[in-house]
Amino acid sequence: MKSSPWHDVRLVFLKEMKSALRFRAAWAAMLMFALTTLACVSLAVQGGALSPRLLAALYWTVLFFASMAGIDRVFEAEDSSGTLLALRVYGSADAVLFGKLLYTFSLLLALAIPLTLAFLLLMDVTVAEPLLLLLLVLLGCFGLAAAGTLVAALGLGASVRGSLAPILLMPLMLPIFLPAIFVTAGAFGGEAASLSFLLGMGLYDAVLTVGASVLFPYLWYAD
């Protein structure tokens, strides 16, 4: 019997969601990581007038640190709990990759939305272009999710997984963060950045996704 690709992706996504919702410690760790970073930044710059570009850089730094608590662990968790073998036998490469990518994207969005609101409130930021900011958060979170899932997949079977992630994540994430910071500064009322940055982010997200889908079957199947 053969099921549709979307059905399989949905199964993996729902399984991830269900398992994560039943293990609240993982969510709490990410949230605490985010709150700690945000509290440090807001207390350090209390009362100071910051330029939109500096605010934008701080915003993406906070989001980056918060996401680092979980985005590259989707396969490590399977490996450490011993479920990777069963998933390998029953799940196709595409279903696993896209199911986990979708889950990571949802997790980041669930983290980014309250974090953004808290950032705007604590840092007293007025958003000149809320729709632009929303689009940036969506594109940025998707890029982070794609890069994180790809790096997590690359770590499959690697004994130096812990050190591999930060090394690989930096070059993959810079093309997401730099344009995101420039355009976010515009959304925070600074000098409007060229919308080609936004297009570039979208293209980069697409390249990451296609790259991951091409590479992942080679990691998933031994032959």
Binding site: K2, T83, Y90
Partner: peptide
């Protein structure tokens, strides 16, 4: 993989 299935001691089910 669509045609085979495996049962081994190290294979685990999702605990949650």
């Amino acid at each position: 993989f669509r045609r085979l299935s495996l049962v081994t001691p190290e294979m685990r089910l999702y605990p949650r």
